[in-house]
């Protein structure tokens, strides 16, 4: 089966600033594909280009075989967009909102009525459907927001952070809906989030995106396998090449290296407070076996009288993968 989505070197520039720096990926029919990245990574910009909300600066994409530059009309029929911000008319009822968006997709009459009833059912809001959206809880609003992207039965659904500001109950309901849509209606889904737990739970494959670039793309299993036998991060004073070499030689350790420092610079007035900390280096130790490595590591540090300022054993999850790749946390 041909992929439902092929993205080919998409770029979005604002003046000199590149919000999206030429990303490429494909999504297979029937897949739930995750776009994971911190704030400002370029997730929404990417989705906006694929759905025709904004024009790409360069590059292209094909959706269901149609090019986004030449066949946007066809593309729009395949796409369903659930925007990051609630895009609903607050004074209208959920049903009126859905009727409106349905009509914009050319639905009408009995068909529209049935489709609206169906999507209300999918997001479990049938009972409250005739109440004004502004009277809903945050979670319920999110669910109407999703429903509005579903009325026209898209083949490819873009969900842009659909769980922001949502209580656990609604969140679970949303997960169930997403899985149900994927399984029972063969909907391909692109799921954007900066919550790695969500992506881990829902997605088959994930693209990790940072500063407009895809820095890793694989199945979750393979991504976590990048961490190998585990990763330990320790903060040490005065690390030199010899120390790193000796650490690498320890039993259970695969590779010791200086962890990349976050690229964001502290604010001017923080400079002074930061001075003493400058002496600490973050060492990233990739292990063959984290338990064994930990034991040998501690005895080595003891023998050499090295002070530990911090220590963290990274769990094998996407959060750690992100930290491992960028030296940054997904969320501050």
């Amino acid at each position: 089966m041909p992929p439902i989505l092929e993205v080919d070197h998409l770029v979005k520039k604002y003046g000199d600033f590149e919000a999206v720096k030429g990303i490429s990926f494909t999504v297979d029919e029937g897949e739930i594909f995750g776009l994971l990245g911190p704030n400002g990574a370029g997730k929404t910009q990417t989705i906006s280009m694929l759905t025709g909300v904004i024009e790409p600066t360069s590059g292209t994409a094909k959706i269901g075989g149609y090019d986004i530059h030449t066949d946007m009309d066809e593309v729009k029929k395949i796409n369903g967009l659930v925007p990051q911000d609630l895009a609903l008319y607050p004074t209208l009822s959920a049903r009126s909102n859905l009727n409106f968006f349905g009509r914009i997709y050319g639905l009408g009459g009995k068909e529209l009525k049935e489709r609206v009833a169906d999507v209300l059912n999918v997001v479990a809001l049938t009972e409250r459907a005739d109440q004004a959206v502004e009277k809903y809880s945050g979670g319920m609003k999110r669910r109407v927001n999703i429903a509005a992207g579903l009325v026209h039965q898209p083949r490819l659904l873009f969900l842009d952070e659909p769980t922001v500001g949502v209580d656990p109950q609604s969140r679970n309901q949303i997960f169930e809906s997403v899985q149900q849509l994927n399984r029972e209606r063969d909907m391909s889904i692109i799921y954007t989030s900066h919550y790695m737990e969500e992506v881990e739970l829902l997605c088959n494959r994930v693209a990790i995106i940072d500063e407009g670039e895809i820095i890793a793309l694989d199945t979750i299993k393979n991504l976590i396998a990048m961490l190998g036998g585990g990763v330990i991060q320790i903060g040490l004073t005065q690390v030199d090449e010899t120390t790193l070499a000796e650490l690498t030689a320890l039993q259970g350790v695969q590779q010791a290296s200086l962890a990349p420092q976050p690229t964001t610079l502290p604010a001017e007035d923080d400079q002074e407070a930061l001075e003493p900390e400058r002496k600490h280096d973050m060492v990233k130790i990739e292990c063959e076996d984290s338990q064994q490595a930990l034991v040998s590591l501690i005895s080595y540090l003891n023998e050499n009288d090295l002070n530990i300022s911090s220590m963290e054993i990274l769990e094998p999850n996407l959060e750690s993968v992100f930290l491992h790749l960028t030296g940054k946390k997904l969320r501050e």
């Binding site: 759905t51 909300v53 009309d73 967009l81 925007p83 895009a87 008319y89 914009i104």
Partner: peptide, 13 residues
């Protein structure tokens, strides 16, 4: 400000 234009831009209108 509601973002509904964004949604409508993605729709066939």
């Amino acid at each position: 400000s509601l973002g509904s234009f964004r949604r409508l831009m993605a729709a066939p209108i």
